[in-house]
Design a binder for these strands. Structure first.
Lengths: 251, 251
DNA sequence: CTTTGTGAAGTCGTTCACAGCA
DNA sequence: TGCTGTGAACGACTTCACAAAG
């Protein structure tokens, strides 16, 4: 999951559920693969399998977009690719800025899937003067002093934040003030933004922690036949990373 | 969002809702920050604000863990940090392997938040023989021929896949065969895994597409007072990234 | 009087199952 | 006959609102 706010209870008239929107890119990817193999049509069953969802869900999702299928046959691949692209706004060009060109920012700048599908990296921005001018992914890094000008000159409405946690909120504020209304946040912080601005976050550490939770459950289950309380740690507490995990237990 | 499957309708007895599990790391981060500032207690209201959720949700979430608060006072910060860490399985050490040491894999290896909180990068693995032995983040990259041995020798149960899309499924299969039961997938593919294996995915391009959807809505709204159908593209279709967006429209 | 913990109500999302159309 | 499109049932998550506890 990612978005903080649903930003409005439901979009006025033809509201597509948020959960459906989140799956459209998945369908699009599967359809693009079929298109490249020149497959003319797919059934909901086949496409659902390729996208990793069940077919009832897929059909319901598509029903929010309109009646684009043919009963007894399936969906026209090219047509669906076009309809979903249009619905997602990928038929236009989205200039994006990446702020924070450290390891992660540089990796994002180099990431191919970024450039494809209507997204274009318009600028790389970093606060370190030593970075300024240095080429990353074939593009000179610009200093953050010019952030506002860069955003305005390029008509940027989507910003990617890949700074350290401490810098994220100030950078976010400046992006928003300059006109950015959608933010993809890789910094491990909660960003606060005014209404009308969308934030999605990607947090590595959170994903791992969720996996660890389930992993622990699996480990606890395979032996213990329900001990009563906690599945008890199999191995032994490793090294406490940064000093939590106190042995004390307040009343 | 990320997980494909809920992997079992609900965990046997004291099932914590998936949505709650996904928020625990958020609370933990906020609590850790408070702990570092030596704040002894927090109210649900304060903590909720710090974590970016509302207080009712937070209280309900905590109620699944037990009654760890004090009415009229709030929650003991240190105690809660401990309880949530334990619940998430962070009181033990989780060795992790990263497969695919390209731009992204290297960035992940260098990412600090990775190493903290009980996760330890046990090995970096890549298929390119030229990478073998090269140090990344102070650690020699190992060749993927040895993947099974590395996983087994280190007791790895969590694997991170940062390979190109085409390599992801084979790598996944090998990880699973070697004993990995949780996978964090950065490759833009749907992975299929046997029951009992958890997969979470992080997909840059999907996040951007979701943002673009909302962005397009905003742009369409500010002018058009409900035209009837589509909010029509404000700018003009840019350059079709990889050849989709056909102008044809099948019957 | 303050703040937690939680039934009950409300909202959102998924799945079922079948009518409707090609 | 085969497969889509969708109302209706179901289940999961959120929010409300208040009783219980310090």
């Amino acid at each position: 999951m990612a978005t903080g706010r649903t930003h409005r209870p439901a979009t006025r008239s033809r509201g597509i559920p948020e959960a459906t929107v989140a799956r459209l890119p998945l369908y699009l990817r599967a359809l693009t693969a079929l298109s490249e193999r020149s497959v003319p049509t797919v059934s909901s069953e086949e496409l659902a399998a390729a996208a990793g969802v069940n077919s009832a869900k897929l059909r319901k999702d598509f029903s929010y977009l309109g009646s684009y299928g043919t009963r007894g046959v399936g969906y026209d691949v090219e047509y669906l690719v076009y309809q979903i692209s249009r619905e997602l706004g990928l038929t236009q060009d989205w200039p994006v800025v990446i702020v924070g060109i450290g390891n992660l920012g540089a990796a994002l700048a180099n990431y191919g899937g970024f450039a494809s599908r209507g997204f274009r990296v318009a600028a790389l921005i970093d606060a370190d003067p030593a970075m300024a001018g240095k080429p990353v992914a074939g593009m000179p890094v610009q200093h953050s002093d010019d952030l506002e000008k860069i955003v305005e000159d390029n008509g940027v409405s989507i910003g990617v934040i890949a700074t350290p946690a401490g810098a994220a909120q100030p950078v976010c504020d400046r992006l928003v003030a300059a006109g950015v209304t959608s933010i993809l946040n890789f910094a491990p912080t909660v960003l606060s933004v005014p209404d009308g601005v969308d934030v999605r976050k990607v947090d590595l550490s959170i994903e791992l922690q969720i996996l660890a939770f389930h992993e622990q459950r699996k480990a606890g289950e395979e032996a213990a036949g329900e001990t009563g309380a906690v599945p008890l740690a199999p191995k032994e507490a490793g090294k406490g990373p940064d000093g939590d995990v106190p042995a004390v237990m307040p009343a």
